[in-house]
Write a protein that binds this DNA or RNA. Sequence first.
RNA 1: UCCCCAGUAGCUCAGUUGGUUAGAGCGGUGGACUGUUAAUCCAUGUGUCGUUGGUUCAACUCCAACCUGGGGAGCCA
Length: 465
Amino acid sequence: MTDCSVVDLLSGKFSVGQVVKVKGWVRTRRDSKAGISFVAVYDGSCFDAIQAVVPNSLSNYEEVLRLTTGCSVMITGEVVESPGQGQAFEIQATGVEVIGWVEDPDTYPMAAKRHTVEFLREHAHLRPRTNLIGAVARVRNSLAQAIHRFYHERGYIWVSTPIITASDTEGAGEMFRVSTLDLENLPRNDQDAVDFSQDFFGKESFLTVSGQLNAETYACALSKVYTFGPTFRAENSNTSRHLAEFWMMEPEVAFADLDDVAALAEDMLKYVFKAVLEERGDDMAFFAQRIEKQAISRLESFISKDFAQVDYTDAIEILLQSGRKFEMDVSWGIDMSSEHERYLAEEHFKAPVVVKNYPRDIKAFYMRQNDDGKTVAAMDVLAPGIGEIIGGSQREERLEVFDARLEEMGLNKEDYSWYRDLRRYGSVPHSGFGLGFERLVSYVTGMSNIRDVIPFPRAPKQADY
RNA sequence: UCCCCAGUAGCUCAGUUGGUUAGAGCGGUGGACUGUUAAUCCAUGUGUCGUUGGUUCAACUCCAACCUGGGGAGCCA
């Protein structure tokens, strides 16, 4: 008797006649007066369930008749070709052992019926049992594995950048404080300010908002690196595209300019989309059927076409020429708002688009100044329906230019001492970008709320489970 | 955080222009039927009507605040 997963059974890894054992949960049960019951069992290994045909001759057939959605079972039996529609193989059961009953089927939240994603979110511990969230989990995994594979195949080193940081200079948003001080009884210094020298790290510390600055140090030694891990933003963002805890993937490449990493972003996205179409055709078919009709076709089209690329300056011109009345007026120098980005990606280009070379005044201190004196070598990748999925730049590697920029922005040189060292000792041009992993999963699956593509979403007022 | 909308059975919703007994579909349960495919057909139960306070003879229905969710905006990934 061989233990086997549902995916192995359905894909024909076991030959007809073999006796197997399957463990999983009941999706549905149908009884026939012909003296048999059909029990669909899933184990998460693929979208579909395996159908077990259970004869009423089993000694515990009475139990089988009481099986409901969610019961856990172990079924033994012979692999047979299925005479019915919908599956190639099924199991002719010779034994059904009920491992765990559902204590009250009437109130079991995950009934075999359609639920709203909002309802599922309120039962985050049970929602992975649904077709929908199970499919999201498998696609998410497929994408994560493909990202690692992509970089590994190209000689990139995965660098684990710290989650706790003592520098509050990362500048990418509000940070969560990390402290072991007693909030009820805070130590005070001479100035009656909180005395962080008594805190765990001897200074103020926070959860990271980006691994970029740390990744740069490794890129300036190992040439091609990337980070992939959790990131935290304490912004009070209540949208379908923001999380307080999310996963970000950030490549950082020495001797690379903005165009190099724009090309890298395109290659990487095409690679992982191709992988998910190959590996998770079952789940993707479900998304196409139930969530987003274009789920598969838009990925196929994405893979086969070149990215649209446009300079910020030209993008502004496109918006001005569009004849469209926008809420926010368009002029060179504005930080484009959602409506502008959506127009570019969804209406003008009708495809993901890379916007490059933004005005320096609206971008971060570390981005490389262009020769025009007005713009920096920054890029955003805008995806239809999601908006900004990637943000990146070439980093300023010239110490004197960097210092001038710090001063201009009123930032303290001492706070960036180790970051400046990279520019003092064997500085090299380098570039990188950040990909919001959940936004990627959102785009691929068509799931419109980012809280449904991460197992346990953290957002303002939301940290249950 | 701002603007708009919503919160009624396990789920999805309808409804009450304030007044005795609050409805439907789905799910569950019982039955019929069937190598079936969230199957089909018949029957069947269920509700502190988001929370707190106010107005009123009377509130699920009106008012206020709050909480939660959705859509949009800002911030960004």
